[in-house]
Amino acid sequence: MSRVPLLVVGGFLGAGKTSLVTHLLQQSGGRRLLVLVNDFGAVNIDAGLIAEAGGDSIALTNGCVCCAMTGDLYYAVGDALDRNPRPDAIVIEASGISDPARIAALALAEPDLSLAGTVTVVNAEEIGALLDDPQIGAQIAQQIAAADLLVLTRTEHGPTEAAGERLAAITPAPQLAAPFGRIDPDLLFGLDPAAPNAPATPAHHHHADHFAKWTGDSPAPLPADRIRALLENPPAGLYRLKGWITDETGTREVHRVGRHLQLSPAAARSGSQLVAIGPSGRFRPEDMAALWREATAG
């Protein structure tokens, strides 16, 4: 059975996590998303809305993450994996104080899951003050450091350069301004084969300029050391990288999101195929192409 992608949506209270998740549901493009929602959340996602968008939800009644005694979140993911059929993807809206890295760690540990990424949502108007707060600042910085992609909300009212600089000082993860959490779901899920019903062209053209994509293909086995170097040090702005690489030792499935690289054994192929994606303006496909040429040059 193929791995189910798990997307972690983190960020402090009021960052806009619920808006982003709601948007993903509305633009799911035929993917069956299963959303884990916190039942005590200040703004609950309406289960009806989720159902209307073709998704499903599991409500958690207990948002505490302090100890294993309340491992409800992990077990809810287990319940999702036990469903038949399994969802195409699982989305977890983390509670406002949880460290998204601890949830992402589950996707990296559990053989039935793959990590679709950790998206930390940041309220551009509030982030400076939050980071300066002596009580909560360090925890906010931890959420930002855990991100594979930073989504800035509340960007419609003024300049966001200051917020962007604060974030860049914490992590090189790509930043994407997305008022009301409107980001293109294909950036998060588009590379996954687990979306058989997805329309060939996105139904939401206004997003088309949100991300840039690169694809690479090589018919012959590649030198192992060079391809490994490329996978470990991709160009700036890359959010996800997926495909198969074949070297002298065999074929492996590649799944990179943010800084997490997962290589798993795969059925033997003769060549290699990779797809990369990142936010426009941050990710330059030509950089990736140059590195690919270097790695694959005879």
Binding site: V77, L108, A109
Partner: peptide, 29 residues
């Protein structure tokens, strides 16, 4: 035992898992 790199999966000096798993993410599987 497939060489997975998992946070909390403790390995000995020779790189073999000791059987110890720390925190829920590593314990859960």
């Amino acid at each position: 035992l497939d060489g997975a790199e998992v946070d909390g999966l403790i390995r000995d000096g020779a790189g073999q898992p000791t059987g110890e798993l720390r925190e829920m993410a590593a314990m859960f599987p």
